[in-house]
Every structure is written in C-alpha cells, then in structure tokens.
Simulated scan of single mutants.
Amino acid sequence: MTDYHDSTKIPDARVTRINCALAKFFVACSISFWIVEHPFFVNFVKELNSAYELPTREFLSDQLLERELALVNSTVATVIENGANLTLAFDGWTSPTHRSIWNFVIMTPTREKYLYKLVDLSENSHTANYVAQVVGKIIEKLDQIKYQRLYLITPQTSHQADAKLTQLIKENNICGGGIKLYCKMRWTTASDSVDSIIRLETVLEQIITNDSNLLNDKVKRVIQTRNFFSDLRILSFVLNPLRKAVLALKSKSATLGDCFLSLI
C-alpha cells in the first residue's frame, strides 16, 4: 500500500525536522522565502509527500528562522564556554548591495567552524589600526577563547614567535610585512603567501638557528627540509602567471585575449 499511497499522517517530530531542513535550505542557498508559496514548488513537495503541509513564508522567515538561529547561538556559546585551543578567523566580502561585510568564525582543533558574528564595516576605511580595533573588541567578548594567529605553515605559532618574527623583519630591513595568509575562497592569495615565505627566508632561518624553541617540531622539520625554499621558488614561478591571469579576468573589460597574453 505504501508504494502507491502516502501516509495520511506525518508524526509531529518528523514535521519539525522537515521544517528545520527547509529553513536551512532556503537560508544556505539564498532563496527568497516567497518561493515556499509558489505553485510549482508546492506541487513538487506534494509529489514527494502529499501529507506534508508547507509552512507559510511568514512562519518560515520568522518563527522557524528564529528557532534555528537560537539553536546555532546556543551551540556556539557551548563551544566558546567549553572549548580549548580555539582559533578566531575572519574575512570580508562585498555584498550585492555593495556593503562591506566581515565574518568572524571560531575554528576548533578538529577543524569544525562556527560563525560567531557578521559585521557591516562599510562606513569606515579598512586601515590596519581600524581592523585591529574591530578584532580587539571581538576578542574581548571571547575572553575564554585562547586566540592564536593563523599562518600558512604555522597554525600553532606562539605569540613569542610572532613577536620575534616582527623584530627580525625590522632588523633585516625587509619590506612587505610578515607571512601572508592563504584564503581558500581567494586562491590568488596562495601566490602572495608563497612569495612572503620566500621573502622571509633569511628571517626564518635565523629563528631556526637561534630561537628554535619558539617553533613546534613540525614547522622546524618543514623549514629545515633541504629543498623547501627551492621548491617554493618553483611553485612561485608557476603561481604568479596564474595569479596575473585571474586578476586580469576579473577586470570589467577583460577578454580571453587578456588571459592568453598573461599566460604566454
């Protein structure tokens, strides 16, 4: 019978799970809530199970969304309260309405990620001092989190090592700053990250020689590998043309010819 007819009654617990999954689907895929009342969407859901009654868009956007938000906030609060060796990461992007939105994400040692906060920073220039102030306020609110900076090859770099790196950069008159971060969503930053490590070769070797206690064993083994910096130079040779090609294609007036010229 069940092969030809849907159940006339869906348990309340299952309805709740379906509604929660539906709310997550609309939010995660950036779909307007009015779609839930579109006849084609209603027919599609009825074909799946005619006994399921779709929520209204008001119920979906208000009660369901607020309920899911409360559950997420509760989970994040638990992670902050009970977690150890947590990392605070942040990134920014421009919204379709040309607003500068920054997200602050808490990362656990097991690589789980929790969105902590979204901040609209459109009204201010993103100078180093201003960004430092914003991050400082976030850290103050997360006083139970052991904050650590993220680097390409040193995710467990201590504050002492960071301070030593900054000191040696100044003493060696190296321009361009410290190690650049790599962001998966902006893969052209891989080229900047590799170039920054090559630029700091002398400094990193000095730390290995004179202050190796500031680095963990994995980092020391990587840097001391005989061909480490040679391999990075080869990688940089490959990445730089690709980076230039990608940046050229992002231009409003870019053509495939621009990409071709960047790669030859």
Rank of each mutant, 00 (worst) to 15 (best):
T166C: 09
E140M: 12
L168H: 07
T127S: 07
R149H: 12
T110K: 11
R149C: 08
S158M: 03
S158W: 03
V131L: 15
Y130W: 14
V119H: 08
L168I: 10
V119K: 10
G136C: 09
T110R: 13
M185I: 13
V105I: 14
K180W: 08
L115I: 03
S122M: 06
K164I: 07
R149I: 08
K113T: 14
I106D: 02
G178L: 08
Y151W: 10
Y116I: 00
I138H: 00
P155A: 07
T189P: 02
K146W: 02
D195K: 10
L121E: 01
K146H: 14
S125N: 14
C175H: 14
P155E: 14
V135H: 00
M107N: 12
A128E: 11
Y116T: 00
Q156S: 12
K184I: 12
L150S: 07
T127P: 00
E123N: 04
A132G: 04
L142C: 05
C175E: 15
Q167A: 07
Y147Q: 14
N103P: 08
Q156D: 11
I139K: 15
Y151T: 15
I179H: 01
M185C: 09
L121H: 05
D162N: 13
E140Q: 13
I153E: 01
R149K: 14
N124E: 15
K164R: 15
L165C: 01
L121V: 04
K113C: 10
S122P: 06
N124M: 11
D143R: 14
I179N: 02
S158Q: 01
Q133S: 12
V135N: 00
L121K: 04
R186I: 01
K113F: 13
I106V: 05
D143N: 15
Y130K: 15
L168Y: 06
K141C: 04
K141W: 03
V131F: 04
T108Q: 00
T157I: 10
N129P: 02
L152I: 08
N103F: 07
C175V: 13
F104H: 05
T108G: 04
Y151D: 08
V105R: 03
A163P: 03
L165N: 09
E123A: 03
E123C: 01
K184C: 12
Y130V: 10
G136E: 10
T157H: 02
D192T: 07
R111A: 12
V194G: 07
L165I: 06
H126E: 03
T154L: 09
T189M: 02
Q133P: 05
P155S: 07
E123Y: 03
Q148V: 06
M185W: 10
V105D: 00
K170Q: 13
V131Q: 10
V194M: 01
